[in-house]
Design a binder for these strands. Structure first.
Lengths: 138, 138
DNA sequence: AGACCAGGTCTCTGTTGGAGACCAGGTGCG
DNA sequence: CGCACCTGGTCTCCAACAGAGACCTGGTCT
């Protein structure tokens, strides 16, 4: 099976019935690429762990995220129906983000990923040191 | 900055002992950022679903990945102890990648994410259309 | 001799992310 | 009155990064 065939089959399948994240042209791949991103995942985790939050709270909660990326990721999540954005027309303005059912579902799959990373971090860091040491000589 | 320094600073930022993916300078954040990436996740999913694979098989399996990114992602996964790379000194050369226990553990958390995306894709695409329609006028 | 194979690396260029300035417009402060 | 300040963004600029495609290695086949 050639690469072109794979892509074509993937596109056809996605156009008709099957959705396949492995297929470059499948819409589900686009969605997956958007969700399989550190900022999107950290935002979902923060909303899941701490409940509804304002823009600035999220920025503080997700260390190191720029306003630009926070805005962009939140827009995407909102657009795909994972997050609800509510504006309170006060002054100064108040905007609150919360998970919608779809987002809550996803957050429950993403959170374990964060916990796993924390639990296994030392092991992975040790592996890195070993790898780096082994490849320093050669 | 060495890994040691990073760990120390990160540890301080993270409250001395705790690893916290939300903290910008925590080593676990760096690991998380590396894993919360579409290529890394798709590679893990492919290895988990289809077993050990050669470089070119992975490239065919993970639609749209460039050799550069495939190499880079595989190196990272190998470095962190998630993936095992085995070279068979034949001609032409044969290189096989497989999951190590740590990688298999992670793959079992990542796979549901892919399946969820496929299962919910239509719903998310519908939400997008609605969102785009609502924002087209305004 | 020349082409071909796998599994990369190198170079160049277009896209993306981050830093920091700017904006709206209502409020308190002097 | 004039001015700074608040939030939740947007705009601009530059550095970093991802992708496309050329090149490499070195052994076999024609």
């Amino acid at each position: 099976m050639t690469t072109e065939e794979t892509v074509q089959i993937g596109a056809e399948q996605c156009g008709r019935l099957e959705l396949d994240v492995f297929a470059q042209l499948c819409p589900s791949r686009e969605l997956f690429a958007e969700l399989a991103d550190k900022w999107s995942m950290l935002i979902l985790m923060s909303l899941s762990a701490c409940g509804p939050q304002r823009f600035s709270e999220l920025q503080r909660g997700v260390g190191g995220v720029s306003r630009k990326m926070l805005t962009q990721s939140l827009r995407n999540l909102e657009r795909s129906g994972l997050v609800l954005r509510t504006v309170f027309p006060e002054t100064p303005p108040r905007v609150v983000y919360d998970l919608r059912p779809l987002g809550r579902e996803l957050a429950e799959l993403v959170a374990p990923l964060g916990h796993w990373t924390e639990r296994r971090a030392r092991q992975m860091l040790a592996a890195r040191q070993e790898f780096d040491a082994a490849h320093a000589e050669g």
